[in-house]
Computed example of a mutant assay.
Amino acid sequence: MIPHFIHSLKDKPTQHLFNPWFERDLENDVTSDAPVIRRRQLSQYLEERLGRAKYLFIAEALGYQGGHFTGIAMTSERILLGHQQDKYGIKPQDVFSGVSPERTSRPELIEKGMTEPTATIMWGSMTDLGIDPYDVVLWNALPWHPYNPEKGFLSNRTPTAEEMSAGLLHLRKFIDLFENVQLVAVGRKCEESMNELGKKFTAVRHPANGGAPKFRKQVRDLML
């Protein structure tokens, strides 16, 4: 199931999307095996939650500080490498435990690995609220990373309507992997995608741009 789903992500719909599982970031990846590492980490993350997850949190799209280098939505290298354990209580084994986590960005970019505010808030909220991280799966309505071609891969941009529409097929396949789960749309763009799929869901505020306090409250009310 999981390998077939990941393979389905190989073909991206437009040029200015980075596919972390099947493309190499020639400027910023530390190794030619980076796509293999990212596929392995995504596979392990999903496999360890298959059949036990209770909630799917789905945001808009991958970001360069998160899934671009880890292969996992709303999850940064700094989390995988254990550098947010002391301050936020987020442990690498909260993400997966069956394989050793690896970074794929060059250490010269950021010594301790890429860090993403959305990832820190998401995982930190689960830790603060005492939520079992294996009850939650994180994903994006657009599975690939939309970047600004003028700024390069270390940038984010708002996905186009065409790209969000193309992501619907993969979003449906992803949701179908999990049974008896509650769908949670993180942000307006994802709400639109869920409505297009005709799925029943709960909407929460995206934690970016000052939305963290409301996001945490909504997550607490939803899950506790």
Rank of each mutant, 00 (worst) to 15 (best):
I2C: 03
H7Y: 10
S8P: 03
D11G: 00
P13M: 11
T14N: 05
H16V: 07
F18C: 04
F18K: 02
N19K: 00
P20D: 05
R24I: 15
R24Y: 00
R24V: 15
D25A: 15
D25K: 03
D25P: 09
D29L: 06
T31G: 05
D33M: 14
D33N: 15
P35C: 14
V36H: 13
I37G: 06
Q41I: 10
Q41E: 10
L42V: 10
Q44E: 14
E47A: 13
R52P: 05
A53W: 01
K54T: 02
Y55G: 14
Y55D: 14
I58Y: 00
E60T: 13
E60H: 02
A61R: 00
G67I: 09
G67E: 03
T70V: 02
I72H: 07
I72S: 08
A73F: 00
M74Y: 03
T75L: 08
S76T: 04
S76Q: 06
E77Y: 11
E77K: 14
R78I: 14
I79V: 10
L80Q: 07
H83T: 07
Y88R: 12
I90C: 08
K91M: 13
Q93S: 15
Q93T: 15
F96A: 04
F96L: 06
F96E: 01
S97H: 11
V99Q: 05
P101S: 05
S105H: 09
S105P: 10
E108K: 07
I110F: 12
E116K: 07
E116L: 08
P117C: 01
T118K: 02
T118W: 01
A119G: 09
T120Y: 00
T120D: 07
I121V: 15
I121D: 00
W123V: 05
G124P: 05
S125V: 08
S125A: 15
S125W: 01
M126W: 00
D132A: 00
Y134A: 04
D135C: 03
V137N: 01
L138M: 08
W139K: 02
N140Q: 04
N140I: 04
N140P: 07
W144G: 09
H145Y: 02
P149V: 08
G152F: 11
F153S: 14
S155G: 11
T158R: 13
A166L: 15
G167V: 12
L168N: 09
R172L: 10
R172N: 10
K173I: 03
K173F: 08
I175E: 04
F178G: 11
N180G: 13
V186P: 09
G187A: 13
C190R: 00
C190I: 00
S193H: 05
L197G: 10
L197S: 10
T202G: 09
R205G: 01
R205A: 11
R205P: 02
H206C: 12
H206F: 13
P207W: 05
P207Y: 10
A208Q: 07
A208P: 06
F215G: 11
Q218S: 12
Q218I: 13
D221C: 03
L224I: 09
